[in-house]
Nucleic acid binder design. Structure first.
Lengths: 252, 252
DNA sequence: CCATCATACTTGTCCGGCAAGTTGGTCGCG
DNA sequence: CGCGACCAACTTGCCGGACAAGTATGATGG
């Protein structure tokens, strides 16, 4: 990735570099971001001055300024006029929901606690607002879950799809948006490639289909309160099972 | 260094404008972002050229470039060399909740519907789990809201802080994470530059303090159900006011 | 009608410069 | 000697011009 050894000192000989596929600004921003992420630049540290960075990376101050502007807009740098640019605390900018994982049961529990609030509300709204097409999609997804159960397959993906369909039926973009955000906390981020990378053991829920049926039925009947309650019951059941798993230990 | 002879059109008379409090780059980036969020610039539209934007906003091309670099890094603009900058499809933006806006009442309503589910759950958990320190922080934030009301200031920021403190007291990272995600949907991303640009009229809630008090009190008493109900009542009241605003028209 | 080319326009980068804010040291004065 | 005022250096914020390179469009010639 490093081939630009020559400097070409002539004044206007090479304003545009040998096309590396990306902009110098993006490159520099990525490099600086990497340095921050790798803790080469620790929070509180002051970056070299703009001219210093320009010389160090063999770019103009314009490029440095644009790169710094990007990192500043990301909340990674705090630039003070006349002083310099300082690395911000990472927790102030950490991407939300970036550390979702099925591996850590505590993470799954945290997520379910959030989903109880979100999805019971989504189910309530879905019962009141779902279009006929959305109702069909929900019923289809429900059937898919049943098929997976009968076939002995994992219900993780189909279960997520059903919950997503319900969120979509709430007629509010925020709900499906949030579902996509928490998706990797419900289905394995790793596509279960080959060896069964057993994630969190996912305590089998024998009542899964009946609990889902209660939710779907309430939405079918446009009963908002019942839909919310059924969703809450469903998720609280999952929450309880995962908590038991946490107490009893994963090995058992 | 006498250059203030006329300061009108001399070449280097006024590189730095009268301090507007914030950077021109940030201002311009916010204005362009707002235009995109408000659909003044629809997906697929081409922005004016950099020199055109520079003239239109009375800034240098340097400022325009830095602002565009920020929006590009946010995934809102697709810049093609020799062609121009185009507004991206909003769903193409990596970060969900990227199109939150106080300007569009429909966006505020959508957000509140989500918050009803999330924050009532957060209040419930907060009532059960809050530490003494977190309780103090909630009480302090509650007092701050009251101070803003008495001083006639906007309660937007302090209100957000109170809700954030409650989310933090839920002892579940997901809740404050989600709150930071929806922050710009609760407080204006553009700090109310100066005149006009009145944001969403934010229907004043005369019962704000008493509704907050009910929530805070329930958390104080560790009454989970009451906390959840109070939060739900509080947000449903806001939802109702915004819906009325939407029906009656913004102009009034 | 179509291929080709000239040209205008746009973005990417570089350069030098000035204004304004901050810091640290020096100097003068009590 | 102590201390405040002042000044010089450094840094960021912004400006304007210039050139290289990519793209699009219309003119031109076959």
């Amino acid at each position: 990735m490093d081939e630009d050894t020559e400097a070409a000192a002539s004044p206007f000989s090479m304003p545009d570099p040998p096309r590396d596929g990306r902009h110098r600004v993006t490159q520099l921003a990525d490099r600086l971001r990497e340095q921050i992420l790798q803790a080469e630049l620790k929070p509180g540290d002051r970056l070299p001055s703009e001219v210093g960075l320009a010389e160090a990376h063999s770019v103009s101050r314009t490029v440095v300024r644009e790169a710094i502007a990007i990192l500043r807009s990301e909340g990674r740098l705090d630039v003070r006029r006349g002083v310099g640019a300082f690395v911000c605390e990472p927790n102030a900018i950490a991407a939300p929901f970036a550390d979702l994982s099925l591996e850590r049961i505590s993470s799954v529990i945290e997520l379910i606690e959030l989903r109880i609030g979100v999805e019971s509300q989504a189910a309530s709204l879905a019962a009141a607002r779902r279009s006929p097409e959305q109702l069909e999609a929900i019923l289809a997804a429900h059937s898919e879950v049943g098929r997976c159960i009968r076939d002995g397959q994992s219900t993780r993906m189909t279960d997520y799809t059903l919950h997503l369909r319900i969120a979509e039926a709430a007629q509010n973009r925020r709900f499906p948006e949030l579902m996509t955000l928490v998706k990797i906390g419900m289905v394995s981020s790793v596509p279960v490639t080959d060896r069964d990378r057993q994630n969190a053991p996912m305590p089998a829920n024998e009542n899964l289909q009946s609990e889902h049926a209660a939710i779907v039925n309430a939405i079918l009947l446009s009963d908002s309160d019942k839909a919310a309650t059924a969703m809450r019951t469903h998720l609280e059941g999952s929450l309880r099972r995962y908590k038991e798993l946490l107490v009893n230990g994963v090995s058992g």
